[in-house]
Simulated scan of single mutants.
Amino acid sequence: MDGFFRETKEKVAYRKSEGCSVAEMECSALAACAAFRSATWGMLLYTADSLADVQRYDQRHWGGSAYEYALTLCLDAVLAL
């Protein structure tokens, strides 16, 4: 877990002031590793659920209807490299 080292109280407050309410942890960690290694890297993100408001949680089928489309986008991006 890199949160203790990369997400300082100041950074969290700054992002909240910009209107952010959630964070995607794995993408940021992989992006940092790729930048450190000077590697070409990308990640396609799409939302399947949110726990930002647990009282109004809507499962939305966990994004199941978007898998094929997401895979097509990823493969197209790789072929474009």
Rank of each mutant, 00 (worst) to 15 (best):
S28N: 10
K9G: 15
L71Y: 12
K9Y: 05
G19N: 02
A80E: 12
G64A: 13
V12G: 00
K16N: 08
E10Y: 02
A39S: 13
R56P: 00
R15C: 03
L44T: 03
L51I: 07
Y57S: 05
H61N: 14
L51A: 11
A31R: 01
K11I: 10
M43A: 13
L81R: 09
G42Q: 02
A77C: 05
M25V: 14
A39G: 01
G63L: 01
T40Q: 11
Y69C: 07
A34N: 03
L75E: 13
Y14A: 14
A35Q: 09
K16H: 09
L75V: 09
E18W: 10
A23W: 15
H61L: 06
D2L: 09
A23D: 12
K11F: 06
K11Y: 04
L45F: 12
A13Y: 02
A23I: 15
L73I: 09
A52S: 12
G3P: 01
S50I: 11
V54Q: 12
A31L: 10
M43Y: 04
R6E: 11
A70E: 06
Y67D: 12
A32T: 14
R15S: 01
L75I: 11
D49T: 03
E18H: 05
C20H: 14
H61V: 00
D49W: 06
R56K: 14
A35H: 06
C20V: 11
H61D: 14
R6S: 08
F5S: 12
T40K: 14
G19W: 02
R37K: 10
A13W: 02
V54K: 11
A35V: 04
Y57A: 07
C27D: 00
F5R: 10
A29W: 04
D76H: 08
Y67A: 13
F4T: 13
M1Y: 11
V22H: 03
M25E: 04
G19D: 02
A52L: 07
W62G: 01
A70D: 06
S17Y: 05
Y57L: 07
E18M: 15
A66Y: 13
S21Y: 11
Y14F: 15
A77P: 00
S50G: 00
C33R: 14
R37L: 11
E68N: 07
T8W: 00
S17Q: 08
G42Y: 08
A35N: 12
E10K: 07
E7P: 01
R15G: 00
Q59C: 06
S38G: 10
M43C: 13
R60M: 08
